[in-house]
Amino acid sequence: MSTRITGTSHLKSENVNVWFGERHVLKDVNITFPANQVTALIGPSGCGKSTFLRTLNRMHELIPGAGFAGKILLDGTDIYDPQMDPVNVRLNIGMVFQKPNPFPTMSIKDNVLSGLRLSGRKTDDASGLLESSLRRASIWNEVKDRLGDAALSLSGGQQQRLCIARALAMNPEVLLMDEPCSALDPGSTRRIEETIVELSESMTIVIVTHNMQQAQRVADETAFFLAEDGNPGGVVEFGNTEDVFNRPVDGRTNDYVNGHFG
């Protein structure tokens, strides 16, 4: 087993540029994600915020023709270092996707523990890990009596919380969430938002969202992304959520957060 990156998590992007084939989609993104805080990435569709999120755990490189420049530092180590195994990066930086995507062939229990099986790791206390992960994702009470049931027997909101539990079981330092509530009803959304706030006590969270109320409810920091007139996207404004929404420095941020476009 190769070594894990250790220490309190501190994630930072330095001059990140991204291409899809010839198309330059992100230019010079510099963001420092404070440890144990929630950072929201907001912006209109096509501004590159989801793309940026996927560079943070090297999922971006799975797209054919993907290009990248710059650095992503996790505790000072560049995760794009040629010596770095992307598997190790993803073990430290977990991800929750837009659409709930539990493994359809596995039970609830097997879904939670799937990361261990997939990465070839073992645990001495599988049932303890199972329970703690499900508890942290606030879904334990709903599924504790049916852990052997198929994951697809759960509702959409429960499936998404199961996916959160699945990511938490690997005990990542950073959790990336790509519009985790966009496919869910308001009740499920509220529960997941509560979960996000609880989780941020023990991990760094980066969340992409289209929902500006959600950003204000859950995020400590907010970054506003924008891609103007065919130019590559970039960060227009980054700072304390309260400031970005109520006292934006840039006029474009002001227009966006007040619903004038996007």
Partner: peptide, 20 residues
């Protein structure tokens, strides 16, 4: 997205193939 989920959990290409 199932394949992405597996890779994002730290799955290798081969374990993703055999287990997902």
């Amino acid at each position: 997205e199932l394949i992405n989920a597996s890779l994002a959990l730290g799955g290798s290409r081969s374990s993703t193939f055999f287990k997902v």
